[in-house]
């Protein structure tokens, strides 16, 4: 009970104590901010989304008896806010800006991985990855994963995150991004090809060599 900023006279919920746990709220904010920043590149917008989610948690405090319940709930609010932000952001970003990326994309990528008759190029064949849990505990793994995500062309990364992080449905993503399901599937395929290769080259194969 560190903070004394409650307005006297309001009838505080018995659950309000959750919000007086400064360490908990501080940590929660950090976690939420990190989550939002993964997807919304504008720090101010990410901060605002976190703030709004915290406010709605505060207004609905009666629903939560435990910190864990509040946390789950506040993250689902945040997830919806992030989806809204991505929707708005899209209106301000020309589609042409999104496809650009630092490396080879699209058909060029596929050409590099497969032979003319559609078989894996010899040196591009997927190698065995160690036990799925190998290294995932390792902080360094997440740095490699971050770097691989950032190396994707923006459009690939954005659609991959909508699908895999925000778990949006195909029709929802397509409506939002003006894509046909086929466009989306092809883009996700290319994103996965690249991520797979990047993780293999920079983590799984790199480990075996050392």
């Amino acid at each position: 009970m560190t903070n004394a900023s409650t307005s006297p006279g309001s009838s505080p919920s018995p659950n309000m104590g959750i919000f007086f746990d400064a360490e908990f709220t501080q940590e929660l904010r950090q976690q939420m901010l990190k989550f939002a920043l993964l997807q919304v590149r504008d720090a101010q917008l990410a901060e605002d989304a976190v703030q709004e989610a915290m406010i709605s948690a505060y207004q609905n405090i009666d629903r939560f008896a435990r910190q864990a319940a509040l946390k789950t709930w506040v993250f689902s609010i945040l997830k919806n806010k992030v989806i809204d932000l991505l929707r708005k952001e899209k209106r301000h970003t020309a589609a042409s800006q999104l496809e650009e990326g630092p490396n080879i994309n699209g058909e060029a990528l596929i050409d590099a991985l497969f032979t003319e008759n559609g078989h894996w190029q010899k040196n591009e064949r997927p190698q065995k990855w160690d036990d799925p849990d190998h290294g995932v505990e390792n902080e360094h793994f997440w740095r490699v994963f971050d770097a691989c995500l950032n190396a994707l062309p923006e459009k690939y990364g954005r659609l991959f995150m909508m699908r895999e992080f925000l778990e949006m449905e195909t029709n929802e993503i397509c409506d939002n991004e003006d894509l046909t399901p086929n466009n989306l599937n092809v883009t996700l395929y290319r994103a996965r090809l690249r991520l797979r290769e990047c993780l293999e080259d920079n983590w799984y194969a790199a480990e075996t060599l050392s």
Partner: peptide
Amino acid sequence: RFSHQVEELRTISKRYVEESK
């Protein structure tokens, strides 16, 4: 291998979101 690895990408992504929480 590709098949296992794209499924693994999905698992890793879920973990990534969990880790950031």
